[in-house]
Simulated assay, not measured.
Amino acid sequence: MSSGDETPARPFILCREGEAVPAALAGAVAALGNFDGVHRGHRALIETVRARAARAGRPAVVLTFEPHPRAFFSPALPMFRLTGPGAKEVVFRRLGLDGLIVRRFDAALAGTGARDFVHGLLKGELGLSGVVIGHDFHFGRGREGNPAILADLCREAGLDCVVVPAVSLEAGAEPVSSSAIRRALTEGDVAAANALLGYRWFVEGRVRHGDKRGRVLGFPTANVALGDCALAHGIYAVRARLADGRVVDGVASYGRRPTFDDGAPLLEVNLFDFSGDLYGQDIAVELVDFIRGEERFPDADALVARMEIDAREARERLAADAVPSMLGA
């Protein structure tokens, strides 16, 4: 099922850190933020950017920063990122933007005052014509800038500025946020996370060699390490997009394999009706539903019996799923 958004008429342009803004993105209207998760709240910013850019005949882009400020200020602390740089690009392309501008979050940017952020970066270096921000956007040295200050500085610099209010799934509900999505995934509540995102949450990674135990058990897997991921350990119904563009249904385990070795957490994806060598390839795996938590079984036979049940359950849930996808599934 598609995301429901039209493919952009113009080619998507990625302007990486250190690169000058290309002529095709000159005078763009930009949504500003970290966009971890690119959830429904972020989608409201993107829709506003696209609408205002279309009226003004300008490119519509996102301006984001890498690494995430939290990772810059506390590099030793684990950080469960919902959407890495590559995944963000996938989603922004899908949402019909003209481009993505990435700037490095470093000591120099962290020490930039609010006025220099607007006049020096947004107006001077990037040549934007307008910006769109969320209600809780802060910027500048020591987070001294807030939406009201940004609006004043944009008027001073001749930039259009729009502040988008918080988005909730229903009246009186908690606003959609990356923190709420992380909490849901930590609890294994994939349905809640996907509802807040507006699409199936997905991860990307390179298939690595494992111990080949899955092949011996009759359930060969593509194994992907997810880094600092706080996803609940357990069994999931999934869809995977392979390097050649094919999208394949499957069932996946994320955890430490307590029946065997209690090793480092690993995502192990068994793809239905698939044969082939995926080692060394980059794949994307989206979570459709949570089936059960991770368990320790008395022996391999008991585990295989349960895996067969899990596979049938995954097929049923995949067949019933109607949540939009960013992977073309």
Rank of each mutant, 00 (worst) to 15 (best):
S2L: 06
G4H: 08
D5Q: 12
C15D: 11
E17L: 15
L25N: 05
A26L: 12
G33V: 02
G33Y: 03
N34G: 08
F35Q: 02
D36M: 05
D36H: 04
R40P: 00
R40C: 08
L45N: 04
A54D: 03
G57D: 02
G57T: 02
A60I: 06
E66C: 13
E66P: 09
F73K: 12
L77A: 13
L77Y: 13
F80L: 01
R81A: 11
G86W: 10
E89R: 09
R93P: 05
L97R: 02
D98E: 08
I101L: 12
V102D: 07
R103M: 07
T112L: 15
G113F: 14
V118A: 00
H119Q: 15
H119Y: 08
K123Q: 10
E125S: 13
S129Y: 10
S129H: 13
V131E: 06
V132D: 01
H135F: 14
H135Y: 14
H138N: 15
G140N: 05
G140I: 01
R141G: 11
A148I: 11
L150Q: 03
L153V: 00
R155T: 14
L159S: 07
L159F: 12
D160F: 15
C161T: 05
A166H: 00
L169I: 08
L169H: 08
L169N: 12
G172R: 01
S179M: 12
S179N: 08
S179E: 11
I181V: 04
L185D: 10
T186L: 12
T186M: 10
E187K: 09
V190L: 06
A195K: 09
G198C: 09
R200T: 07
D211I: 14
K212G: 09
A222R: 01
N223P: 07
V224W: 10
C229N: 04
L231P: 00
A232M: 11
H233A: 14
I235G: 04
A237E: 08
V238D: 06
L242N: 06
A243G: 06
R246Q: 10
R246A: 07
V247S: 08
S253H: 14
S253K: 11
G255W: 09
D262S: 11
G263C: 05
G280K: 03
Q281V: 15
A284H: 15
E286C: 03
R292H: 03
G293N: 01
E294F: 04
F297T: 03
A300W: 11
D301I: 05
D301P: 03
A302Q: 11
V304E: 04
E308A: 12
E313G: 02
E316H: 11
E316K: 09
L318K: 01
P324V: 04
P324I: 00
S325I: 00
